[in-house]
């Protein structure tokens, strides 16, 4: 087991190397006007250095004066030491900005994640138990609707209904105008009001795939021989479903849920942008659109790490949960 994990980690490191190389190449092929604009802006600040000085300094800082490969290694050298440079858009070290915003995304993602599990898993099981019933069709349609909904459209509709027409929830932001004057309960309620619509959006959008995954796996288990055996033994349907079937459905479920745990830190780019929640997604969007190379580089590599971590966790969990596939 340990050897397996070690091997996987090693492969992941190699993978990460190539991923960051590709991202770096893409970032470098962006027209240099970004740096030029940045240098122009910086040189116009009161008491700043001249434009050419800034240009050379910025080019030097980000290895832009070198070729792509040496430039990449320079970036890599400081990156492995945890130094991702200063964000151009936010004028603070990239890691500092990241630490500021990541928790907004984490809270948002976690609440939506818990809700998704709470809704999708029971519904998926229900649909599988009554395959081809009206209930199954209904749940399938809801699941497919969730998958098919464009996030931006759904969020806009929710805003229109709940924020504009009914005026129950604010249009965007994380805290209200009078947040600082509120007591702790008031603050909590204020936050909850602001988080309601984004969480609702994420939950509805995310529910579909998990629901279908649960249903498919539950169906597979329900068709298995040991379920027939359990029924033949004369066990109550409740026990068959909740004990024999559900436990076995848990194997793929836990695997995939474990694999999506790192994703909680990934943020929701569209949702955060539309609701202007200062999470990692919104911040990254601002950085990307304004051509903030240091932050974007960091964000992309971070996302890649999360993906790699996700598959790694899923694979390891698979081996842990299901003794049949344990290696070595």
């Amino acid at each position: 087991m340990r050897r397996y994990i070690l091997k996987r980690l090693l492969i992941s490191a190699v993978l990460l190397f190539f991923v960051s190389l590709i991202i770096y190449i893409i970032m470098r092929s962006i027209p240099t006007s970004y740096v030029e604009t940045q240098a122009r802006m910086l040189s116009q600040l009161p008491g700043a250095k001249s434009y050419t000085e800034w240009l050379t300094q910025l080019n030097e800082t980000y290895g832009m004066d070198k070729g792509i490969v040496p430039g990449y290694f320079q970036w890599l050298k400081s990156a492995v030491r945890g130094d991702f440079g200063d964000s151009w858009q936010f004028n603070v070290p990239v890691t500092q900005k990241f630490a500021e915003v990541i928790w907004y995304s984490f809270v948002l993602g976690s609440i939506a994640f818990v809700l998704e599990i709470g809704i999708a898993v029971p519904l998926g099981i229900l649909a599988a138990r009554r395959q081809y019933s009206r209930m199954d069709y209904g749940i399938t349609v809801i699941a497919l609707l969730g998958i098919s909904l464009p996030t931006f459209f759904f969020a806009t509709v929710l805003k229109l209904i709940f924020a504009v027409w009914l005026d129950w929830f604010p249009l965007y932001g994380t805290v209200g105008r009078f947040y600082m004057q509120l007591d702790s309960i008031g603050r909590f309620l204020d936050l909850a009001r602001h988080y309601f619509l984004p969480v609702l959006t994420l939950t509805i959008i995310g529910i579909g795939s998990l629901m279908r995954y649960t249903r498919t796996n539950m169906l597979e288990v329900l068709n298995a021989d040991f379920i027939r055996t359990a029924r033949a033994k004369g066990l109550s349907e409740k026990r068959v479903i909740n004990y024999h079937a559900f436990r076995n459905t848990l194997i793929p479920l836990v695997t995939i849920l474990g694999g999506s745990l790192p994703g909680l830190f990934a943020g929701a780019l569209i949702t955060e942008t539309l609701f202007q929640i200062q999470g990692i997604g919104y911040t990254a969007y601002l950085a990307m659109v304004s051509g903030d190379i240091p932050f974007t580089m960091f964000y992309m590599v971070f996302m890649a790490v999360l993906t790699i971590l996700g598959t790694l966790i899923a694979d390891i969990l698979y081996a842990v949960v299901d003794p049949r596939v344990r290696i070595g």
Binding site: I26, M288, M300, A304, T307
Partner: peptide
């Protein structure tokens, strides 16, 4: 594997803004 690790939407956004 490498392609799977590249975040899809961010890359599209970057290429779009380029």
């Amino acid at each position: 594997d490498v392609f799977f690790c590249i975040p899809f939407l961010p890359i599209l956004i970057i290429l779009g803004s380029v």
